[in-house]
Simulated assay, not measured.
Amino acid sequence: MKKLRHLSFVLLLSGMLAACSNDDGATENAEASGEEYEPATIRLAYNLPPDHHISHGIEQFVQKIEEESNGQIEMQVFANGQLLSDKDMNQSLLTGGIEMGMNSSTIWSSTVPAMGIFDVPYVFEDYEEVGESLNGEFGDILRSEMEDVGVKVLMFGDYGFGQFANNQRPLESPEDFAGMKIRSVGTLPSELIQAYGASPVFMGGGEVYMGLQRETVDGATSGTTAMVQRSYDEVTDYLTVNNYAYFEFILGVNQEYWDDLPENTQTLIEETANETEEWIRHQTKLEDEETLQVLKDRGMEVYEVPADELDVWKEAAMPVWRTFEDEAGEAGEKLLDIAEEE
């Protein structure tokens, strides 16, 4: 019996020592993997469909933050409009209803007019130019304008270049728009549609297919990624590729919430956001090229405006530049000056 009790004691002691050893090892591993991060729960909302390349980027962003913090930072993601519509999201972000939100620059422009720069036609000519601009003074101005209303920009998510699809006729010059009804998404895009002689019709993204099918509208402007995802080829016959605008989505965080986060948490989020922004930008170019080919393969008649004809399209669009300058003031003028210099 004494031997049995002695054996039990030895086993118990060994177990306790092993447990202590495991705890020490777990602590070392936790510290190495980011256990030192303070616990936080961050709600992030966006409205893009799950198969969009920006959505993939956001999911990578979320996953890395949770992994690097060893789960201490919990990211609660509400995708595809589960929590907020795009119209409601900005107000919720400004008031702290959510901590993070990703929304289009077009929608932000109603609160921060300078964000309308991405809807000003023919400001950007290629993907690399966008990245260089956003990493320089151009991007700094936009970040500052957003901070003035209480939102810190974490990431610019490239959506891609905007094009025109329609079910009436090829659009090979601005004059070809005359008399058509084109779905629009904001003030400046509507100005452009009017400048080209058509009538803008405001319509949500989910309504466009039915609107084209029922001929409530004759055409729509969007990126080719959305055109493929929403099957525009089934309800339109013609596509004009003129890269007239470069659509952006903004990942922002409530400034007051951000200021209260520990410095190492801020650093982790910012570094991860920068990596994700670069991945999305690279992916955007691939997506634009692939989806354009898909639309061609599906039978859409595609007209790609030759480079030597773009000046005609730009000249007809100049009223939009003047409208933007009036709305965005000094910041808008500075952004246009930088864009023209570059």
Score class of each variant (00 low, 15 high):
258 W>D: 00
48 L>F: 09
172 E>Y: 01
227 M>K: 00
158 D>W: 03
273 A>F: 05
141 I>L: 01
267 T>N: 08
5 R>K: 13
236 T>R: 02
130 V>F: 01
78 F>P: 05
51 D>Q: 14
309 E>L: 14
339 A>G: 02
54 I>F: 01
333 E>C: 04
65 I>H: 01
193 I>E: 00
89 M>E: 08
188 L>D: 07
240 T>H: 07
315 E>W: 12
313 W>M: 03
194 Q>W: 11
329 G>D: 03
281 R>M: 13
201 V>L: 12
190 S>G: 12
58 I>N: 09
311 D>Q: 11
45 A>R: 01
342 E>A: 15
327 E>Q: 14
317 A>M: 02
280 I>H: 09
305 V>D: 13
231 S>M: 13
69 S>W: 00
279 W>R: 08
57 G>V: 07
110 S>N: 11
216 T>R: 04
51 D>C: 07
261 L>I: 04
223 G>Q: 11
318 M>N: 10
2 K>F: 14
57 G>N: 15
63 Q>V: 15
232 Y>M: 09
203 M>D: 08
20 C>T: 15
96 G>R: 15
179 G>L: 05
61 F>R: 06
268 L>Y: 12
226 A>Y: 05
33 S>W: 10
10 V>H: 09
103 N>C: 06
103 N>T: 00
80 N>S: 08
194 Q>A: 15
135 N>P: 02
197 G>I: 10
84 L>I: 01
322 R>M: 12
58 I>K: 04
57 G>M: 03
10 V>C: 07
159 Y>L: 13
178 A>P: 00
269 I>P: 04
328 A>I: 11
130 V>D: 05
49 P>M: 06
94 L>D: 03
71 G>K: 05
84 L>H: 01
13 L>R: 15
148 D>S: 15
235 V>D: 03
218 D>K: 08
237 D>I: 12
139 G>Q: 00
124 F>L: 05
62 V>R: 00
289 E>Y: 15
198 A>P: 10
333 E>M: 03
163 Q>I: 03
93 L>G: 03
139 G>T: 07
282 H>N: 13
132 E>I: 08
318 M>Y: 06
82 Q>R: 10
70 N>F: 14
60 Q>G: 04
179 G>A: 07
